[in-house]
Structures are given as C-alpha cells and as structure tokens.
Amino acid sequence: MTNKIKFTDREKKLTRRLFWRNMFLGFNMSYTRQQGVAWDWVHQPVYRDIYKDDDQYWEAMQRNLEFFNTTPNMVGTVSGLAVSMEEENAKAPKGTFDTAGISGMKIGLMGPLAGIGDTFFSGVWGLIIMGIAISFAKQGNLVVAALPLIALIPNILIRWYGQKYGYKLGSQYIQKAVEDGVMTMFTKASSIVGVTVVGGMIATLVKVPVVFKTKINGTVFELQKVLDQILPAMLPLIVTIICFWLLRKNVSPVKVLIGVVIAGFLLTFLGITGA
C-alpha cells in the first residue's frame, strides 16, 4: 500500500506545511470551541491554496471554526482527511458537494482518536518514558537530556503518517477501521499495557517507609520486615487502592491529594513511618 502513495510537489509542500502548523493546535483553547479557533489558524494557508474563490475560502473558514477537540498528537489523520475533502469540494461544481460531510467526519473521528490518543500518550507512553526519565534524573544523570529524542518518535510518526494516509487514502479506510473495531481493539491493548505498567509502578515508585520497631520478649520486632514477608510493597498497594476507590466514588483528585499528604504527616508524627 505504501508504494502506491505518490505526492506531487504541490502536495508535498502542502503536507509539510500542515504538519508544522498542526503543532500549534494546543494553543489558545477556549471553553466553547476548544481547538476550533486553532484549527482555523492551522489550516488557513491550506484553504487559501485550495479555494481560489474568495467566497468559498471564507465560507470554509467560517464552517471550520466549529467545536473541535482531540488529543493534539492524533490530529494528523483528521487534518489530512479534512483537507482531502475540502479539495473535493473545491473541484466539485458549486452546491453539489455536501460540506456537512466534512463536519460529520471531524466530529465522528475526534472522539475515538482522543480515546486512543489519551490512553496511549498519557496512560502508556508518557508513563513509561517518565518512569525511565525519573530513574535517570534521581542519580543526576544528564542522559535524560537525550531521552526526548526517543520519547518524541511516536508523537512525530503518528502526526506525520496519520496526516499522509488520511490525506491520500480517504475517509472510507479510516471509517472502516473504526467500524471493524480495530480502533477499540487497539485502545484495549494499550490499556492493558498501561494497567500492567501501573501495577509495576506502584511497587517501585510509591514509598511508604515504615520505621516502627519494638522489643517483644527480648527479640526486636521490625514492622517493615514482617510486612515484607506477607507481601512486598503491601502498603503502597493499599494506599493506591484506597485512592482509586475514593476517586471512583467521585471524590475530587485535589481532596484525595490533600488526604494523602495529611496521612503521610500523621503516620510520621505517630512514629510509624519515617525517612
């Protein structure tokens, strides 16, 4: 499929320009349109290129100021598709192309793409990369400075190839992927990676150091050792499960955060935990 895609010089220039301008999608978000205004600013020169007719250009600008919200890293696909549809609109005789299809496509795709994007970028990739970065940074290792070179690869690839295939393959392929359930399957697989990593992170990164010690019949009783024999990292697991349970009860994250800080202080003042 890859070698079938050929770009003319004009299209090459257009996609490259779109790629760089799409980096700005996260700026100037509003409550009512989210990334709507940014979408217009990003696509402005492309629309100008497509629509030689001034009326049609401003009509497109007005139409595309609508609500739009997705994971910025996933915008490439929608952007490429939308531009190819606008081109069809420009080619078709006036009034024969239904522009509602463009809006429909944008609204239909932004949700599923955000679902995958948030799960993958925030839940899986960001988690793994930050986990590695923190373990380097803890030792003051300046290698962290080079880590973004690897970390940004999926970000760039998904933006670039999403846009390329969106533009060239057209909506039926992407829509087919959504209908076939490939998207849901991929989101589910990403979630599984995320859940596994979170399980591991709880044992390695959450720390509840118990220092409580006492003498019973002459033998030293160290609470941490006893706990470790039952289940290593038991307290971090319990703390996380309590937080999770509270969040599911719709307690606000800020309250849970403050609760954890207070718990940390209380346990320390009682002499159970310590540094």
Partner: peptide, 14 residues
C-alpha cells in the same frame, strides 16, 4: 514521607 506516597494518587487517577 508524604512526597513518597503522592505517586499513589497519580497511579489511582490513571
């Protein structure tokens, strides 16, 4: 100690 426990909140949110 509290700072060590804080990642639990982030993990729970995810």
């Amino acid at each position: 100690v509290a700072a060590g426990m804080l990642p639990a909140v982030g993990m729970a949110m995810l």
